[in-house]
């Protein structure tokens, strides 16, 4: 039996509007995280606003697959508890007809970064995208100042495909928007 949603430390889960809205609301007050995770203007959201966002996501569930990243309880005896929410991952703008999708992930707290969690999540996401959704290719979008993301995606086999020159305005200057891509045949299956 293939376990698509668990790795050593991480579990891909659905968001729980009741419990997770407060945590995600706190993330939206961290401008640094928002500017790394998204190209839209940083904007704090209250827990009710986040809840509404989750409801909106339900309506587009066929095109966008959202995952809550939870730290598995250690030791895990019996049925696992909900686990601490540390970030998000998603396959979005899934174009089923052509077999293409966008991919994004983020780990919110600086203390949770650099622990190898991102690598575990990427392994799960790629397997999910290629083996479960049978997609042909994935894209990831990032501003050129997100050096961590660039290194991360390159390490996982993604190639730079598009450089949208000066597409991002922040702090009074312009940055390129980069798009990385990974084809099914380039995926290094674990």
């Amino acid at each position: 039996m293939t376990q698509l949603f668990v790795s050593d430390h991480i579990r891909l889960d659905a968001f729980d509007p009741e419990k997770d809205a407060a945590v995600e609301s706190a993330w939206t007050h961290e401008a640094e995280f928002l500017r790394l995770a998204d190209l839209g203007p940083a904007r704090p959201l209250s827990p009710p606003q986040v809840k509404k966002k989750y409801e909106q996501q339900e309506k587009e569930a066929d095109k966008n697959y959202h995952f809550a990243l939870r730290l598995r309880e250690v030791p895990a005896e019996g049925p696992e508890g909900p686990g601490r929410l540390i970030g998000f991952a998603r396959l979005y703008w899934i174009d089923w007809y052509h077999g293409a999708a966008m991919l994004a992930l983020g780990i919110a707290a600086p203390a949770d970064r650099g622990q190898g969690y991102g690598t575990e999540v990427m392994g799960l996401l790629l397997r999910y995208a290629f083996d479960e959704c049978s997609l042909h290719r994935l894209s990831a979008l990032m501003p050129a100042y997100n050096l961590g993301a660039i290194r991360f995606f390159e390490r996982h086999g993604f190639a730079l495909e598009v450089r949208r020159r000066q597409a991002v305005a922040r702090d009074g200057r312009r940055w390129d928007a980069l798009q990385y891509g990974l084809l099914r045949e380039e995926w290094r299956k674990p």
């Binding site: 007809y97 052509h98 293409a100 290719r137 894209s139 598009v162 798009q179 891509g181």
Partner: peptide, 10 residues
């Protein structure tokens, strides 16, 4: 041309 999304269409 700023790049190409490879194999984007079938």
């Amino acid at each position: 041309v700023e790049g190409a999304v490879r194999h984007r269409l079938r």
